[in-house]
Design a protein around this nucleic acid. Structure first.
Lengths: 354, 354
DNA sequence: TCACAATATGGTTACGTAAACATCTGGTAG
DNA sequence: CTACCAGATGTTTACGTAACCATATTGTGA
């Protein structure tokens, strides 16, 4: 009930006050009157219906232009039940990976004729997600993309019934179609690459506890080492930020057995670079480093960072595809789980051990 | 007329098909019937009106919960003329500076009870901006924030009349309220810092031609040098990307007279770092480097980057404030130009020349 | 006890659009 | 020449809400 109350308050704003001329936005009736036609005919022109004489259509278009007519989206939405809008729930938009997904998502949605209503969560808890969804209310959006709930099980998010939803989540639990980058696959490539160069084992700076991609990468790293019969060292605990990578890096730099580090993301790799540099250990001479995500800056780290590239574009396109499919067909797609492959990009931060 | 046609087509989608039970979303009338009250009373509860007996309100809330009622946003918007939504036009959202502004903007808008409808432009030309605006149509949003038009004069953007608008633009031309970081001030601080360290002059890697912030930083750099009576070297031409900074850096590294470089943004500074490193010139020993923006990674460059920090939060808050003020008061705020101060952050990438 | 005020609740209406159905026009085939 | 058909246009209606005005109910003071 508490959650429900969040969308029950009005904003208390009045419609915008009048220009000098009592020039309220022109409606379809005004256009009809000016053109000497019925409102229905105007509506037909504005929706692109074909059964209108070219000459009549022209008359309507002229009247529209003259009045600066634009269809009232609210009325249209009320009538049709659709807003041509999808909701996107993100978490810390400015985090590099997230912002790429969101940009790609916005572009994909726009291409499909949809506007994106964006909510940015401060914290990605189930409750906050639920509140955010209710805020958009279940009729203001035609569908919902949840990409910011990395520490939350999608199944525990309370959603309006019948609202098409897709989530970006690699666990593939719950009923919603899900799309994610191949965290495990990318991690395996990274570990094998480093072992293949001759490193005896690979250390890891992990993302925050509870984060799904962080856990998946951690597990895959552990599994890859075990499968290869290598020792699994204690992972360093990070939180995605460069600062945490730096902290972890101070410990790593002090440990002479560390010759190869797989970082949970590129930002933490940047922090590690600096810690190693301060300790006088060179990359890749003394320590090889691999990142994850392939942010634009990764190529211009010094040295250029070897990393696991995520295809954010592909992830976003797939998310939008799956969502629109549900919206159009009116049916929930259950058990659709799409894993977008990662690409391993070898640059200059990895080398055989000394 | 061509532009107008863009918002006249419907999407041709049918409303979502029925669940097994003919369970269309509950309306205010359904709630009223279940509670044994009039629709009006239900409406009062849902809008938070005070003149309802607590006992009656409770009856309504129970009925709402039972039916899973949520107000129909379209109907509400149609009645009130307001969507509680603001449009945001961005350009290359994933660019670091931009994504911070957008995140802060979304947060500020959400705090004020507004949803953000986001459009990401591929190219920031006047025409594209106009098309994007028309796409949102002038009644789907209560106001518009334009932050992605850096190569476009706001005055040349065709906007629906009477739509409250704010732009993020430091030129302050045209009628719209504008907010921007203090490009010139920040640049001056950077140049003075470097001259103060004893450098004879300061080189510059500029942002793309035509970009407003790029030009402002370029001009301010030139002016600061002239004012100080220093030689003004030919600037290097970049385009905001690390790749362009690297290119420029190759030339800079080859020129022994270059001892201090002011970069148009932090990404280009990253590219410069690498070029200098490859040429065997150290930062800050041989060359001092200053960036612009203070992206989160800047502190973890190796060495830590001295840069001009922009307060994206403050910019966004001010943009939203100015927009909401116009929306609420119904009057356009002309000639409101707000310059958000920058902060100069001294880190480890600058030092006196050898 | 009753009149009156204050508060609570109900009925009617309009917001702008587009679907469904009705009517009108012009042309064509029998 | 007429009946009919197809296409063009008009009329009516409903979508869900909240403002406005009308009415019912409660409580208070004389």
């Amino acid at each position: 009930m508490a959650a429900m109350a969040t969308h029950l308050q009005t904003t208390g704003r009045e419609p915008r006050g009048g220009e000098p001329r009592g020039h309220v936005a022109a409606s379809i009736a005004d256009v009809a009157a000016l053109a000497g036609l019925s409102a229905q005919t105007v509506s037909r022109v504005s929706t692109g219906a074909t059964n209108v004489r070219p000459q009549t259509r022209e008359r309507v278009l002229v009247a529209m232009a003259q009045l600066g007519y634009a269809p009232n989206v609210a009325a249209r939405a009320l009538k049709s039940g659709s807003f041509a809008t999808i909701g996107v729930i993100a978490h810390q938009l400015a985090r590099t990976g997230e912002s790429h997904t969101v940009q790609a998502l916005v572009d994909a949605a726009n291409d499909a004729g949809y506007t994106v209503a964006l909510i940015d969560l401060q914290s990605p808890t189930s409750q906050d997600v639920s509140v955010a969804v209710n805020r958009l209310s279940h009729q203001a959006i035609d569908g919902l993309v949840v990409i910011g709930a990395e520490t939350t099980a999608p199944a525990t998010i309370s959603l309006p019934p019948r609202l098409p939803v897709v989530v970006s989540d690699a666990r593939f639990v719950g009923d919603h179609p899900a799309v994610a980058g191949d965290d495990a696959g990318g991690t395996t490539l990274a570990v094998h690459h480093l072992l293949g160069l001759g490193h005896r084992t690979v250390h890891h700076i992990a993302g925050p506890r509870g984060s799904v991609p962080a856990e998946l990468r951690l597990d895959a790293w552990r599994t890859a080492l075990r499968t290869a019969g290598r020792e699994v060292p204690e992972p360093f605990q990070g939180d995605w930020t460069a600062a945490s990578g730096y902290q972890a890096g101070r410990s790593a730099a002090a440990d002479p057995t560390v010759t190869a580090v797989f970082c949970g993301n590129d930002e933490m790799a940047a922090g590690l670079y600096r810690a190693l540099s301060e300790a006088g250990r060179s990359v890749p001479g003394d320590v090889s480093v691999v990142g994850f995500d392939d942010i634009p800056l990764a190529e211009y780290f010094t040295p250029s960072l070897t990393t696991v590239a995520q295809d954010f574009q592909a992830i976003a396109r797939r998310l939008v595809d799956l969502l629109l499919q549900q919206i159009r067909e009116g049916a929930a797609l259950k058990d659709v789980h799409s894993l977008i492959p990662t690409e391993f990009v070898v640059r200059a931060s990895t080398a055989p051990p000394r």
